[in-house]
């Protein structure tokens, strides 16, 4: 029972912290570009504003358009509940392993792409078409990257993976470096960041995610935006806790939770800075360069897996 309460609190923390991470990346980016910039908590204000606003829906919209925001947010929140943010060994982590996590993202994306095509505008179809192309290349790269870790610890369960990784002697694992780099590239593509997509743009030639949700307004838009922020958060936590697992609470004591809270916040803030620096120093690439980018991610993950099989299996 205790575990379920902690799991629910952890999920709520994840959802509550997600807008801050997005705001933090934006704030750091603005500072790097010598701009004033909105404060890191600005996304909370935006969401509150959107939730208050009226919803306008096209007369061509079907029921898919109206249920998609709820479905996408629920599935993303459920995905958040199985990723160990603070503690391992929670009962929620047994519901789904890392393959199911990828499945959750795919389910959310399926409905996101359908919602984009629902109204029948050129924008929506364009966004959906690009989104499914990018994700169908990113998904295998991501699975290969996590499979490398899964094979190392012989488990696909996220909590077990982190638990066993903590026990590993501290030394250099070439496969982890390749897999980590691959996963970073995938995260950039899946969360729609520069250089794959630009979250700040509204220019038709460069949009992917924004094109699909162009027709949304009010609370529907708020749920869509929040789900996207949550996805960035989940990827951040995944990378932080899989590749730098130290600090995660193993026992459910107040002290352990405090340590876990501080370490994961620090890890995420550092990851946010890395993302902001890379977004500042890179330019958005042409759509047809993206397959090469994702091909690199795929090759890195494959190298990770092969180096694990060849070098590390005894």
């Amino acid at each position: 029972m205790n575990g379920w309460v902690i799991a629910i609190i952890q999920t709520a923390l994840m959802a509550a912290g997600a807008p801050f991470l997005t705001g933090w990346v934006k704030w750091v980016k603005c500072k790097l570009q010598c701009r004033q910039g909105p404060p890191p908590w600005q996304p909370y204000r935006d969401l509150a504003k959107l939730f208050r606003k009226e919803v306008v829906i096209s007369d061509k919209a079907s029921v898919i358009f109206r249920i998609s925001p709820y479905l996408i947010f629920s599935v993303t929140a459920l995905a958040g509940s199985i990723v160990p943010l603070l503690a391992v060994g929670l009962p929620t982590s047994a519901i789904a392993d890392v393959i199911v996590l990828v499945g959750f993202f795919a389910l959310a994306r399926f409905f996101l792409a359908l919602a984009g095509m629902d109204i029948g505008t050129a924008f929506g179809g364009m966004g959906s078409s690009r989104e499914v192309t990018i994700s169908s290349l990113a998904e295998p790269a991501m699975l290969l990257a996590v499979f490398t870790l899964a094979m190392t610890v012989s488990s696909t369960n996220l909590a077990t993976m982190i638990y066993r990784l903590l026990d590993f002697p501290f030394q250099l694992y070439p496969s982890f470096i390749f897999a980590g780099l691959g996963l970073l590239l995938v995260a950039v593509a899946e969360c729609g960041r520069i250089p794959v997509d630009n979250p700040a743009t509204h220019l038709e030639l460069t949009m992917v995610h924004e094109a699909m949700i162009l027709e949304y307004s009010g609370r529907h838009l708020a749920l869509m935006e929040w789900a996207a922020m949550l996805k960035l958060m989940i990827y951040g936590v995944l990378i932080a806790n899989l590749f730098v697992p130290w600090g995660v609470a193993l026992e459910y004591t107040a002290y352990d939770f405090a340590v876990a809270m501080v370490t994961i916040t620090a890890k995420l803030l550092v990851l946010g800075i890395v993302l902001a620096v890379s977004e500042t120093s890179l330019a958005k690439m042409r759509l047809f360069r993206v397959p090469q980018f994702l091909g690199l991610a795929f090759i890195l993950s494959l190298l990770g897996m092969l180096s694990h099989v060849i070098l590390e299996v005894r």
Binding site: F110, S128, S135, L144, L302
Partner: peptide, 19 residues
Amino acid sequence: PVAAAVLALTGALAAACFV
């Protein structure tokens, strides 16, 4: 594991196709 990668690519492309 390469077969696993092929399966992952297949699943993702199937989702694209049915979208």
